[in-house]
Design a protein around this nucleic acid. Structure first.
Lengths: 246, 246
DNA sequence: TAGTGGTCTAGACCACCGG
DNA sequence: CGGTGGTCTAGACCACTAC
């Protein structure tokens, strides 16, 4: 039969779709514009909706699309550059316009946190919850863990578990000398609680920034900040205007 | 009718699965151990394979699982801490044990790169390709773009487009004074070319680290490094042993 | 060749948003 | 309420790996 092999390496359909749609986004659509719905698009490309969705998922992962249930799929604006360089964080500030204290409570340290803080799992930690707002949109949810033993003044705090209490804990932190800090970034998926505040579905991809604050040679606090991976670009230098298409 | 609302917020099945399997990984499996295959697992949990896969996908995204076609699904080791702090990078080194030069070629600058380098789209750039190895595994693929105008000596390089040429370009770079650099991290998906070198499928999630090197107040080079998001944790401090379960 | 994960289909129903 | 994206099913076939 001698069938000539036309496509020697048949690229998956969803990957080809991704390329085609991606190019269409560049040329035929404006930021914020609504795409045809998924059933319509799938029919137009002659594929099943699941296949079409696989392509859209990746484009959303890359920050090129934004999908909202009950609304539709829109063309996403370029990712927001969010400064996470040290110095700005220094100590977590009390009066930081970008970070909005949500509340605080005392609890036993989760195992993973206890390990990083080099304390026992049963030791008490103050947990401060903050939300980072950038350009009117929530971009990150943070949990700051401060061991009760880190700062003496902490035990005297008696504000109810709200923003006021959170601010009080942050204020106490300033009394400590900050030797240094180290930081790591990794990919994660949003816990239900964080997803809600970030206006995403649970499991949405997030960049987890873990910062350990050192005082007197020992970890004095740990911050776990989860940034929306779809809309954020973490920047570490002085140029927030650095833009790259992935 | 007064129907009592039993499950007010019915959690999606795949999310519950993820929790159940995740807990099983902690208690019943050792690192490297092979899980039952997907059809078996789906049957065991009484769900369709697609649903089971949705749970496995997220666990893989979080670095808890590793799936390889034709082989199976294994329990992943904790993520590797990869140091990307400034200073170690300084200039991209010629003799850096972690970074392995692959090759180099001259070409017109891609649009996105030209924008960051503040040059014209038609200007020539030297593209150096490197691979970062950590603990025997490739963890990152890098493209380093150096405008032909940045370093005079570049035009004299006549080595064939291989590792030797790459080293020559890197060597020339050392002649420039390095004023500073800025960096950003964002989520992306692996291009086919990078995926191959990272031993992943195209579209796999990666952390894209873009570094701009400044010399004489102008961008002298740009590096775009794509790190495997499933196996890597990018670290910026001096403590590589910082481990957090997401 | 047997068994694995990867892709794809053609449906169905659900949760959510807006008018 | 109608329309959107999100979840789920029960299949099928393909690409790859290891034996």
């Amino acid at each position: 039969m001698g069938t000539t092999q036309l496509a020697s390496v048949p690229e998956p359909k969803y990957q080809h779709l991704k390329t085609v749609i991606g190019e269409a986004l560049d040329s035929d659509f404006a930021v914020g514009e609504i795409l045809p719905n998924e059933r319509e698009l799938a029919a137009r490309f002659g594929v099943a909706r699941a296949t079409l969705r696989q392509a859209l998922e990746q484009l959303e992962l890359e920050g090129r699309l934004q999908r909202r249930r009950g609304v539709g799929t829109t063309v996403a604006p370029p990712r927001v550059g969010v400064d996470v360089s040290t110095g700005r964080h220094a100590w977590p500030g009390v009066a930081d316009e970008a970070w909005q204290p949500q509340g605080s409570a005392a609890d036993a340290a989760p195992a993973a946190v206890a390990r990083v803080l080099e304390i026992g799992t049963d030791e008490q930690v103050h947990v401060v919850r903050r939300l980072r707002i950038s350009q009117g949109q929530p971009v990150a949810a943070e949990l700051l863990y401060v061991p009760a033993g880190s700062v003496p003044g902490l035990s005297a705090i008696d504000a109810p578990a709200g923003p006021a209490r959170a601010r009080a804990v942050l204020r106490e932190l300033q009394h400590l000398a900050l030797d240094g800090q180290d930081r790591s970034v990794e990919l994660g998926s949003a816990r239900a609680e964080d997803a809600k505040e970030l206006d995403r579905l649970p499991g949405a991809p997030v960049l987890v920034v873990t910062t350990r604050y050192l005082s007197a040679g020992r970890p004095a606090a740990v911050s776990v900040a989860t940034y929306r991976a779809d809309t954020c670009r973490l920047t570490f230098g002085d140029s927030v205007d650095l833009v790259m298409a992935s």
